[in-house]
Design a protein around this nucleic acid. Structure first.
Lengths: 190, 190
DNA sequence: GTCTATAACGTGATAGAC
DNA sequence: GTCTATCACGTTATAGAC
């Protein structure tokens, strides 16, 4: 019984890894089954269709993001530290075999993924943008962040910068990510 | 004779469109052949392998970008106008069925594309980054742009922001692109 | 829950006629 | 240059035994 949840979770781990590594159309049930050491049909037992699998990956990511955001609260971090933690989160992708973030991968493949996945993707992105906007709004009010214009625009720019940064690394060098983070912070703190 | 070049160019147009629309693994020779009204095998006549096709798309994009940059010179545009033109270039993708930019699509699919395409992708990105860095360096020297930090970092941030922006549109709304451009300019002009 | 076996279809690619 | 026909293989997915 714990075994079921265990395998299911393992499949999600592996599939999400492939998704960030190769995109939604860049991996198959066979890849997952080989990676896990079971058979193709066994993967289908846990996730009947690839759509089910894709939706589950994104839903889990949404929950994980919200838990993460919550954990920052309970650790009592300040605005500046929270922003650092977000950047660190993306840096993890780069450090882990130059993977890209889930949102970026799903948006690039957007027109090829089923409707249910598109819907979850919007939800995921909306959740992240909402959090970031809140952080920037609060941080600016308290004088931690200093940027002109609308908070919403700044949040969008940072989200775009973050997801573009992890992708750019693949065509340049890992240090590009650090460059972009450095500059992003420079512009928001002065 | 002109017909050959014509069909070949049409294939490139259609394939590049698919690539920006659905990613490298999201379209097939069949899609192209149907779209062009010829047969699968005929497409293979012009581009024997999908790798050949992919490489040709990127090479053409590199040439096109350099012609575009050159055209800005002959039009005698200033630094500020050149930056506007770049943003406009990306906005075109958004306006055209919310497509993403070639660099972003290729980077997301990077680990699934053949070596030759990876090489061309690096070349393409390098070309764009070099141009942008030159623009920012010159513009800052002349007092048009005002940003702290390294020119290279700023160029990387803007490239990441641009490619992230066209992608984010898909999961949010087209106006996100305008928001991001507005904020990007705000930060580089003050 | 996992297996074997297989269906139904899509993919990149090639041979050879016209 | 384009066609028909076909190959070899990968894909998602299902039926049914263990």
């Amino acid at each position: 019984m714990t075994d079921q949840r265990h395998t299911k979770e393992q499949i999600l781990d592996i599939a999400e890894n492939f998704l960030r590594d190769r995109g939604y159309n860049g991996f198959s049930y066979k890849d997952i089954s080989i990676s896990l050491g079971i058979r193709n049909a066994s993967v289908h037992y846990h996730f009947p269709t690839k759509t089910d699998l894709g939706v589950a990956i994104i839903r889990r990511a949404i929950g994980r993001f919200e838990s993460w955001a919550q954990s920052l609260e309970s650790r009592g971090l300040g605005h500046s530290e929270k922003l650092d933690e977000l950047c660190l989160r993306f840096k993890t992708f780069v450090d882990h075999e130059q993977q890209v973030c889930l949102g970026g991968a799903l948006q690039t493949d957007f027109k090829t993924i089923p409707d249910e996945m598109q819907k979850e993707t919007r939800e995921f992105v909306s959740s992240m943008l909402g959090w970031l906007e809140g952080l920037l709004k609060d941080g600016r009010k308290q004088g931690v962040f200093k940027f002109p214009g609308k908070t919403r625009d700044q949040a969008l720019l940072m989200a775009a910068g973050l997801q573009g940064a992890v992708q750019l690394v693949r065509a340049t060098t890992p240090s590009s990510f650090d460059s972009i983070m450095r500059q992003m912070k420079l512009l928001v703190y002065r």
